[in-house]
């Protein structure tokens, strides 16, 4: 067997179990839904070209996601540059929603998330598209790739602190969108009892061992 064939076999062996996750990640991340195959083609081609640099026994999953992520980033930039000729970068998502956060409906969402999530794949996709590019990547790398923070930091090329803050913001935004969707479509009912709010007195109870 030729060295090239051996390389191809090893590469495919690593790649096959990850194909579904890579494709789902790509579909969720790309601004242009028609670019999925081109992006994956290019990323996989580049990764195979560099496969000699991959150290066997290390984390292939994170390694291949890095290639796909780079390609997605480049494609999204091109897409935005074409469709918004006056903009250089994608606009940052605004924080206005924080002012109108509907806590009562959020409690209802916490009580029965499936009531909303079973009906809203399209709304979820829309909410994802409203995130800024880094928040979107970090959230999807966590959810679809199942990566640790340090792996996400490597893949996205950002510090770990940025990963943590981006993930927290992305989750908050997404939840807000779900609440809005659930409220507008009558999927959430306001809870009848008050919610469990954190209370400062707990500190003393805990410290005194009285709780």
């Amino acid at each position: 067997m030729s060295p090239q064939k051996r390389k191809a076999d090893r590469f495919v062996e690593h790649l096959e179990p990850l194909q579904k996750a890579l494709e789902v990640y790509c579909r969720r991340c790309l601004s242009d839904a028609n670019a999925v195959e081109d992006v994956l083609q290019s990323a996989i081609g580049n990764a195979f070209r560099d496969f000699d640099l991959f150290a066997e026994g290390t984390n292939f999953r994170a390694w291949i996601f890095r290639y796909v992520n780079l390609e997605i980033k480049a494609t999204n930039r091109t897409f935005w540059a074409k469709s918004h000729a006056s903009l250089i970068e994608e606009p940052e998502a605004d924080d206005d929603w924080r002012l109108n956060f509907d806590e009562a409906h959020f409690d209802a969402l916490l009580d029965s998330p499936d009531a909303v999530l079973q009906h809203c794949d399209e709304a979820l996709a829309g909410a994802i598209s409203l995130l800024n590019p880094l928040e979107r990547s970090v959230l999807l790398l966590k959810a679809i790739g199942g990566f640790k923070y340090r792996e996400i930091a490597d893949i996205a090329g950002v510090p770990m602190g940025t990963v943590m803050s981006s993930l927290a913001r992305a989750r908050e935004r997404l939840r807000h969108q779900l609440v809005e969707y659930g409220r507008e479509h009558g999927l959430l009912s306001r809870p009848q009892t008050g919610k469990a709010a954190p209370h400062e007195n707990e500190t003393n109870d805990v410290e005194n061992g009285e709780a």
Binding site: E23, V24, L117
Partner: peptide
Amino acid sequence: AVTETLRQGERTADMWDRI
């Protein structure tokens, strides 16, 4: 529940064969 929803999707066999 959100994670589970985000993960839903299929592998497109034809596309991966071509790739």
